[in-house]
């Protein structure tokens, strides 16, 4: 299984310079396999820095990053191998597209891994299927695709490496609601089919509530909260204090309680709220 653990990781930008900034401050946490973990925090809270620690794009100034109990920096020359195991989809990943056809672009990662051509073709096909790219699109130039298709092609480029850990930095940013649901749904599906360890960074509380098994909250380079969505979103005051929000339905639940209808504060999806409301009515009537 693929479990990533951070042990007392600290990272400082511009060390020694007047603009020195502590992006990560003694962070310890574990991303468990077989789960989708959501990482939330407002801009500058250290999320993107943390994400770049996981596949060795950045090296911690102190502390260790462990993949299945092994320090990823044990042999710095082998860091490329780590990057094949921990796939990272950066923010707005469509700018990484470069090859002549979508197919060749998706194959870039697997080719770097040294897979043989037959396997590459299969991996590309699978990744395209996971991300919902129609086969006829594979022969097109990536620059002729629409915005949402480009995003999917870029995502497929990382999925094709079949990493045991898939890290996505704002995978749905800038997409319309339909596109958001589509891409996050496909990520969820990929996680369920592959059993991978999936980590999603997002600003959207709604998305986190719907798609994550566990939520971590970052603030000023520190981990301030972690737990199931219900646990985290029931602490609305603290979330608002660190400049974050709670899902709209959680706000509705709070407003209802203040109005005298208490359906609980651990509500974070509309479905669940409806369920509580209905069962409350039954109890009331019955």
């Amino acid at each position: 299984m693929a479990e990533i653990t951070l042990e007392n990781v600290t990272y400082v930008y511009g060390k020694g310079a007047p603009y020195e900034m502590r992006a990560l401050d003694d962070v310890s946490l574990t991303f468990r396999a077989g789960e989708i973990t959501g990482l939330i925090g407002h801009t500058g809270s250290g999320k993107s820095t943390l994400v770049q620690m996981l596949n060795g794009l950045l090296k911690p100034d102190s502390g260790r990053v462990l993949l299945d109990g092994k320090d990823i920096w044990e042999d710095p020359k082998q860091i490329q191998q780590i990057r094949f195991q921990v796939g990272l989809v950066m923010q707005y990943p469509e700018y990484q597209l470069f090859d002549e056809t979508v197919e060749a672009d998706i194959a870039f990662g697997p080719k770097n891994m040294g897979m043989d051509p037959e396997k590459i073709r299969e991996a590309v096909k699978r990744a395209a299927q996971f991300t919902g790219l129609r086969p006829e699109l594979l022969k097109k130039s990536p620059f002729d695709l629409s915005g949402g298709q480009k995003r999917r092609a870029a995502l497929a480029g990382v999925m094709a490496m079949e990493p045991a850990v898939l890290v996505l930095d704002e995978p749905a940013a800038g997409l319309d609601p339909g596109g958001r649901r589509e891409i996050l749904g496909r990520i969820r599906e990929y996680q369920q089919k592959s059993g991978a360890n999936v980590i999603i960074v997002s600003h959207s509380m709604e998305d986190m509530a719907l798609y994550c098994d566990r939520v971590l909250v970052m603030e000023n380079g520190r981990l301030v909260m972690s737990g199931t969505p219900a646990q985290v979103f029931s602490r609305a005051e603290e979330l608002i204090a660190v400049g974050l929000d709670v899902p709209q339905i959680t706000r509705v639940a709070r407003a209802l309680r203040d109005a005298g209808v208490d359906i609980g504060l651990d509500i974070y999806t509309v479905k669940f709220a409806a369920h509580r409301l209905l069962s409350g009515r039954e109890a009331h009537e019955g």
Binding site: Q52, N55, L57, Q80, R83, F84, G87, L88, V89, M90, P93, Y95, Q96, L97, F98, D99, F108, G109, N112, M113, G157, V158, M161
Partner: peptide, 30 residues
């Protein structure tokens, strides 16, 4: 862009001169 391609296993620092020059294509085009 370099980070994104590194995350896909691109390698800019080893190999022959020709190989390294070719490794720049995935950066230059985007």
């Amino acid at each position: 862009i370099m980070n994104a391609q590194k995350a896909r296993g691109a390698d800019f620092s080893t190999g022959s001169l020709v190989r390294r020059a070719k490794a720049l294509i995935p950066i230059l085009i985007p």
